[in-house]
């Protein structure tokens, strides 16, 4: 055997995995080669030492929490990416056309052949005091809602939207009327980024019925998992009533995301009422996810007893 072969074997294989006939060849080679002999000794020593090394022990109970954190981070990433997509991006050729038309207009004005039309009214700022929010929201015609500015310290924010004309609404997150607009945006707006910003802003609002209803609707119906997850967390700040409990149970039974189902179970686990316990067990009857089954067993199953309603 040559040094190169011996080295390759010793570097690639554990000593116990080397077949006996190869071991004999290595032994013969070691008698004549100090370097390979040293390599063999090192390998033997290190292999024994590594067998003594304590295994790093994984606390498996942490995995559901890690899972939820991962999915939360991934959803943030989804929104970060969607925020970079400019919905107003126009093709380059558009600017060519605009330039040509602008040049034609300038020439027209200069030549006196162009009669300017009635100037379009500028977008009015609609202060909170003068905004009739019920009127704005009643026909569900408010669309393209954008939360433009938020002052995290004072809660002041600026929202733009369009209905017949473009609107700019200014107000404070503590104002019930602004909360209604955000609730409306969460339930109605097409843009998941807007819905996510709305739900994040509403996380501190715990008294509004409109917000609570919007959060429940979002938890149950929003197509975007990230929005549903944030809505679920925002909803957890409210004290549990029958509507909220039913929403959680619905998530446990029907939501496609295990991360959301786990969060809903964990929220309801805080309620030690036997009726809640039974409802959670019923809602999870068809649960196939092993991780969730483990969580339920750990929390609800009496030692030595099957997991069942009391």
């Amino acid at each position: 055997m040559k040094c190169k072969q011996c080295e390759d074997i010793l570097l690639n294989y554990n000593l116990e995995d080397i077949p006996e006939n190869i071991k004999k060849q290595i032994d013969q080679h070691r008698n004549t080669c100090i370097r390979c002999s040293q390599l063999w000794e090192d390998n033997l020593l290190i292999t024994r030492a590594m067998q003594e090394l304590p295994d790093v022990k994984l606390d498996e109970e942490r995995i559901p929490f890690v899972h939820a954190k991962i999915m939360d981070r991934v959803h943030q990433e989804v929104f970060r990416q969607s925020a970079h997509i400019n919905p107003y991006r126009v093709p380059a050729r558009f600017w060519q056309t605009v330039t040509t038309v602008a040049a034609a207009l300038v020439i027209g004005i200069v030549l006196g052949n162009f009669v300017p039309g009635k100037p379009k009214p500028t977008t009015p700022d609609l202060p909170i005091a003068s905004a009739n929010f019920d009127e704005l929201l009643k026909d569900n015609t408010l669309n393209d809602i954008r939360i433009r500015e938020v002052n995290q310290t004072t809660g002041e924010l600026v929202i733009t939207a369009s209905r017949i004309n473009d609107l700019t609404l200014t107000g404070n997150i503590t104002d019930p009327e602004i909360q209604k607009v955000l609730a409306y945006a969460l339930v109605r707006d097409q843009n998941p980024g807007t819905r996510l910003r709305s739900v994040k802003l509403m996380e501190g609002v715990t008294t509004s019925k409109a917000v609570q209803q919007a959060l429940i609707t979002s938890v149950l119906q929003d197509e975007n998992q990230g929005v549903r997850q944030r809505a679920l967390r925002a909803l957890s700040q409210y004290s549990i009533n029958s509507d909220i409990r039913n929403a959680y149970l619905n998530v446990i039974s029907n939501d496609p995301s295990p991360a959301l189902r786990i969060e809903a179970i964990q929220i309801l686990m805080r309620d030690e009422d036997a009726a809640t316990r039974n409802a959670v067990i019923s809602a999870s009857e068809d649960e196939t996810n092993e991780m969730i089954q483990d969580i339920l067993k750990r929390y609800y199953q009496e030692p030595g007893q099957p997991l069942e309603k009391q």
């Binding site: 995995i63 899972h67 991962i70 999915m71 991934v74 998992q225 295990p258 991360a259």
Partner: peptide
């Protein structure tokens, strides 16, 4: 597909 991605997470996270 986020559901598919979550399945990947679940398969490999441990």
């Amino acid at each position: 597909d986020m559901a598919a991605f979550e399945q990947i997470v679940q398969t490999y996270e441990k």
